[in-house]
Each structure stands twice: as structure tokens, then as C-alpha cells.
Amino acid sequence: MINVAFTDNIQRHVECPPCAVNGSNVREVLEAVFESNGKARGYVLDDAGAVRKHMNVFVNGTQIKDRANLTDPVPDGASVYIMQALSGG
């Protein structure tokens, strides 16, 4: 299982409690999260399915490289953090 946690700041707009899902890359993990929390998708990803410009996704503390197609691998037992970027000062 993959443990997924969200920035506190997103909770003001859409409830995103920590959860555990299955998946072997970032796309699969996020899709599993959005399957039960569809509203969160548009807050994290843009219309084309890429990570929003001012959002970050970390796997075990490392920022993902493929923000467009979300192909970074996620090993079993990993922690995925969905954070807002420190944009705007």
C-alpha cells in the first residue's frame, strides 16, 4: 500500500484526509485517490492531467520529475505527499 497525505491548505477547499491506496507509479496512485475523492482531482491536476504549476508531489521525500505524465515509480510502502509549492513569496 501507498500512504498519501495532502497539504493542509487544500483542506479549506476540499476535504483530503490521509489515505492508503495501491499503485506502482504516481499516475496510478493519484487515480486511486481520486476514485474515491473526485473533487480533489481538479485541485491537484490541471485539465490535461498534469500536476498544477504551483503544486508539488513528493515520493518518499523526493520531488517527482515527470509532472506531465506522472510516470515516476512509487515503491510499495512509499509515502506520497501532495504539497503546494512555495510560490508567491
Binding site: I10, G42, D47, R52, Q84, S87
Partner: peptide, 27 residues
């Protein structure tokens, strides 16, 4: 929202409360 994208809301009580509605989404 600077981080979370554009969203649309609608009020049916003169602006006292708003509910998020669908966001225009590009195909």
C-alpha cells in the same frame, strides 16, 4: 486559486452562501 486552479461557485441566496459548481474544463 493560485495553487489549486480556477473554480466556479454559485449562490442562490443573494451571495450569503456559495456552493462550488462544475468548473469549465478543456477536453
Amino acid at each position: 486559486h493560485g495553487h489549486f486552479g480556477a473554480k466556479m461557485h454559485r449562490s442562490t441566496d443573494g451571495g450569503a452562501t456559495f456552493e462550488e459548481i462544475a468548473t469549465p474544463t478543456y477536453p
